[in-house]
Simulated scan of single mutants.
Amino acid sequence: MEQHDGRRARGDASRRLVLDRAVDLASVEGLDGLSIGRLAEAAEVSKSGVATLFGSKERLQLAAVDAAAERFTRVVIEPARVEPRGVRRIVALVDRWIAYSRDRVFPGGCFFAAAAAEFDAKPGPVRDALSRALDSWSGYLAASYGYAVAQGELEGDPAQFAFEATALLDAANTRSVMSGSSEPYVYARRALVARLAAAGAEPAVLERLAEVDDRVLA
């Protein structure tokens, strides 16, 4: 029994390591280009070993989406949850998202922005998985905004805010990856601070978002 558990633990560890390499690779070269052969080459493991872990290219891509979602949750959502529900959590969420893209948690920038551009017109399980991940993020932003409205901290439509915030963040990510500059994050911060201030957020609450200079931190 102990021998069996040891083999399973080693297999799980190997799968995690290969998946970490898979999501990093896909963020740069594209999720559609992620294949068992390419991953085996990049991770310096055998093709048969990768095939044993995932079985097919589609299953590998789906596993990569799940692994990317777990990494995103770990670095963006979980740290923001230390803040109370409402405007403070919204500020923490968008601040963490900017840091996630700026610091290249995925080497190619936001994994989901890149993958969505690849699969938005390609029906199938991979697009469905990406759509769920994107909906989860925008839904969480909207729910957080809804709490702020209910608590009298903000005014406005939560879904509209989530759409606008996501558009600004995605644009900042794309422009930064393309240009190699952190200037787009500065513009995104200014726009988000202005948007939240117009909706009624207290200036002191917005300091965390407003006073960061991404050009220095990059």
Score class of each variant (00 low, 15 high):
1 M>V: 04
1 M>W: 12
4 H>T: 15
19 L>D: 07
22 A>G: 12
22 A>P: 12
31 L>K: 05
35 S>G: 02
35 S>Q: 09
37 G>D: 08
44 E>Q: 15
49 G>P: 01
50 V>A: 01
52 T>S: 09
54 F>R: 13
57 K>V: 11
58 E>N: 02
62 L>H: 03
64 A>M: 11
71 R>Q: 13
74 R>H: 12
75 V>L: 15
76 V>W: 12
78 E>G: 03
78 E>F: 13
81 R>F: 04
81 R>C: 08
83 E>C: 10
83 E>R: 15
85 R>F: 09
88 R>G: 09
91 V>D: 05
92 A>T: 12
93 L>H: 08
94 V>W: 11
95 D>K: 12
99 A>R: 15
103 D>Y: 08
108 G>I: 01
109 G>I: 08
111 F>D: 09
111 F>H: 10
113 A>N: 15
113 A>T: 15
116 A>Q: 11
128 D>R: 10
133 A>F: 12
134 L>W: 13
136 S>C: 03
137 W>S: 06
139 G>K: 11
140 Y>M: 13
142 A>I: 01
147 Y>V: 00
150 A>K: 13
153 E>C: 05
154 L>D: 12
157 D>G: 01
157 D>M: 08
168 L>I: 05
169 L>H: 03
171 A>I: 08
171 A>K: 11
173 N>V: 00
181 S>A: 05
184 P>I: 04
191 A>W: 08
191 A>P: 03
198 A>R: 08
199 A>K: 07
199 A>R: 04
200 G>D: 01
209 L>G: 07
213 D>K: 05
